[in-house]
């Protein structure tokens, strides 16, 4: 069951459809993840296309987050975790040990489920990443902070209180601050682990709109248990499910519009129609 590359037929040629060829920013090849002896993910194959939003959906415990966390090697933090197969970023295998984790994490940023601003002021939250990479001059940092906050659609709300604590913001604002923090190191890919699950519907829509805005410059991969969200924001959708060995597998990958209007796999159909079980 391999879903290698996908033929993208342009089904509808709507007005303004740009027929730019899709470039695979990342390629996952026969990847499995183990926790000790337990095989959490089995033979994952997928492409992450540049400047597109790719959503990973599936029932709880199917390994969505594990998959996402493989992309910036956050699984390294779990001592028993081990990865087989490869994940290519612009053709280079980032799972190889010789690859610098710090560099991988700079190029592939992450936004978490719950907003997790550092207990510092707004400015320092955003400047944290650039400082790590040696940017010290105040002028440079000022520019980066402003640009990142603008990209995250937060600048107007916080420009007069940059020296207030990041924790003083509302939940939705905190999450946008975390997005600004991730953008500040100019990553190429942004991983989002259920970024709106702790937010109210309006803040959720705001985050989704923000994703649409920034995807022109970045490549986004989002894990969500909210199917409607995946449908709204993503260009591509990967459907995951656990097999009989309780190991996560990717059962379908395709353009979001075809996954939600005409899925190929019966299990995907059952899941998106709410008949799963």
């Amino acid at each position: 069951m391999t879903i290698q590359t996908l033929e993208i037929e342009s089904q509808t040629h709507s007005a303004g459809s740009d027929a730019k060829p899709l470039g695979a920013k990342m390629e996952v090849q026969n990847m499995s993840v183990f926790y000790g002896k337990f095989r959490a993910l089995t033979d994952i194959n997928m492409n992450i296309y540049a400047n597109k939003i790719t959503a990973i959906i599936g029932p709880s415990g199917c390994g969505k987050s594990t998959l996402l966390r493989s992309f910036n090697r956050m699984n390294d933090l779990t001592p028993s975790a081990r990865v087989e197969g490869s994940i290519l970023l612009d053709g280079r295998d980032i799972t190889a040990n010789r690859e610098d984790v710090v560099d991988v994490r700079r190029r592939i940023g992450m936004v978490f489920q719950r907003p997790n601003p550092f207990p510092k002021n707004i400015y320092e939250n955003v400047a944290y990443g650039p400082r790590l990479y040696g940017i010290r001059r105040k002028n440079d940092l000022d520019l980066i902070v402003e640009k990142s906050l603008k990209q995250a659609a937060l600048w107007e709300e916080v420009k007069d209180k940059l020296h207030q604590s990041g924790l003083s913001l509302s939940g939705g604002q905190q999450q946008r601050l975390c997005i600004a923090r991730a953008l500040a190191v100019e990553p190429e890919v942004i991983l989002m682990d259920e970024p709106a699950s702790a937010l109210d519907p309006i803040s959720t829509l705001r985050i989704e709109e923000l994703m649409h805005d920034i995807v022109k410059e970045y490549t986004i991969l989002i894990v969500t248990h909210n199917m409607q969200q995946a449908a709204r924001v993503s260009d591509f959708t990967a459907m995951m499910m656990i097999d009989e060995h309780r190991s996560g597998r990717m059962i379908e990958f395709g353009e979001t519009k075809s996954i939600f209007t005409n899925p190929k796999d019966k299990r995907t159909e059952d899941y998106v129609t709410g008949r799963f079980g």
Binding site: N72, M74, L77, V101, V102, D103, V104, R105, R106, G109, M110, F112, Q113, R114, N116, P117, F118, P119, Y128, G129, L132, Y133, C178, R181, A182, V185
Partner: peptide, 18 residues
């Protein structure tokens, strides 16, 4: 201290000690 805070920093590429 929430685990997420540590992860947030590590995900930016910060080493553990920092």
């Amino acid at each position: 201290v929430p685990h997420a805070l540590r992860e947030g920093s590590l995900a930016l590429g910060a080493p553990e000690w920092k």
